[in-house]
Design a protein around this nucleic acid. Structure first.
Lengths: 231, 231
DNA sequence: AAAGTTTACTAAACACCGTATATTTACAGT
DNA sequence: ACTGTAAATATACGGTGTTTAGTAAACTTT
């Protein structure tokens, strides 16, 4: 058999490949991703995948983009579960959603922020739109705080001219907010990312607290540090 | 040729294997680590490595332990460059050293905190002593602050009973300090780790600031949040 | 000094991997 | 019916970690 008849072909094989990839990533981890294993499960040969993805890296990129989208959705849903004027509560809810997604899909979090695929380097320009959008919930709430004069953000280091172009593109997708909002978002992001990634790697429990409680504590510290009373 | 005469043998082949591994990690990245490549460079065959390491993972573990040791040393040197009573300055210096090591050896930082080796899972109990020691500089200074009644650490979540054993072992190597010192250290660690790992992954510049400046800003925020005046 | 044992390696093979090339066949358009 | 293209297979190449068997050098014991 060389080419199966249409009836025997898998409809939308491109999607099927991605789905199988996710299934295997969830089961065996992102490091075990293998085109041949995907092909085996779909009962096709490995080179057939090359009709849909030019190489393994292209498949990984597609997966990363999907993951970012789901990640961003989680946070947007959390944000929109509260009215716009409850900014501190929204920030907290986004933070909880951030960790929840990471815990629900640890392999996807690893895929995005770790380097589990040997030799893979994410093509920045391709991934950036969805990556930037995945932080848009956070940035939008921080900017609402700024507009309400409740954002504590003094003396932030300025943008480097060399990165202005990069920065401009990023704003296109994350939202065109004030620089101070973006800077604060960056720090808030780094804090939740730090705690979540240590927890996922198994580094939290030995040091004394359960992950969820310590995380909530950190969220409150973040709130205390970056939100001030409107006066 | 089957067994080379003593004169032709590489003296301390175990060390030579690790050195070659580091060289290749520095050059091609941790994901590209390959027993066969190491063997090629040393002009031996790949299975010969199995005389010194039971499998690839054992070699990786040995490398991780070496990396942790070097990482810890950097921070201890930074701490000890200042007198013990200058606690805030010591904390700042350790923070700078933390990032500096990561920037000097990005591949090693990835090796420790990322998951660059397919299928590799660090054996916690084996790695913990050196891993714990790599944070001992930080913990000791935080505890000095606590003793001086300058540590802001209210209402931290308690240790979970399930992890008390784990925790006890960890204390053996990181230092037997008060639980509040360890909790604060944990949070400080997660913050610097968050920022450093985002920067290494190339996620800082697009968002507006240069890494070093943003990092110093965050160190100051950490100081502000966890150090209070002795009164 | 001879004999036996252990050590440190090589050679060959296995089962994977991503990927390139050539080939075949099903289908669509003319 | 003929032709061209699309979608798959078959095959092959060079890479990986690892296992097994074999061998010679070096050491230990007698």
């Amino acid at each position: 058999m060389v080419r199966p008849t249409l009836k025997k072909q898998i409809p939308n094989l491109q999607e099927a490949i991605k789905e199988t990839a996710w299934k295997q990533i969830a089961e065996f981890g992102a490091t075990a991703l293998s085109l041949r294993a995907i092909a085996r499960e779909l009962k096709i040969t490995a080179p057939a995948i090359y009709n849909y993805f030019p190489d393994r890296d292209a498949l990984v990129t597609a997966l990363i983009i999907e993951a970012y989208a789901s990640f961003g959705d989680y946070q947007l849903v959390a944000r929109d579960s509260l009215p716009r004027e409850k900014m501190a509560e929204r920030l907290y809810a986004i933070g909880i959603a951030y960790r929840q997604w990471a815990i629900d899909f640890p392999q996807r979090y690893q895929l995005i922020f770790g380097t589990p695929i040997p030799g893979y380097q994410a093509p920045k320009m391709e991934v950036m739109p969805t990556a930037a959008r995945s932080l848009s919930a956070l940035v939008s709430v921080i900017d609402d705080l700024r507009v309400a004069n409740m954002l504590q953000a003094e003396n932030f280091p300025p943008v480097q001219p060399a990165f202005e172009e990069h920065f401009r593109i990023w704003k296109t997708y994350a939202g065109d907010y004030d620089i101070s909002s973006l800077s604060v978002s960056m720090l808030v992001w780094s804090r939740v990312h730090g705690l979540v990634s240590l927890e996922l790697a198994g580094n939290i429990p030995p040091h004394g607290a359960d992950g969820a409680a310590l995380y909530r504590y950190e969220l409150n510290l973040i709130t205390k540090q970056f939100i001030k009373e409107n006066k």
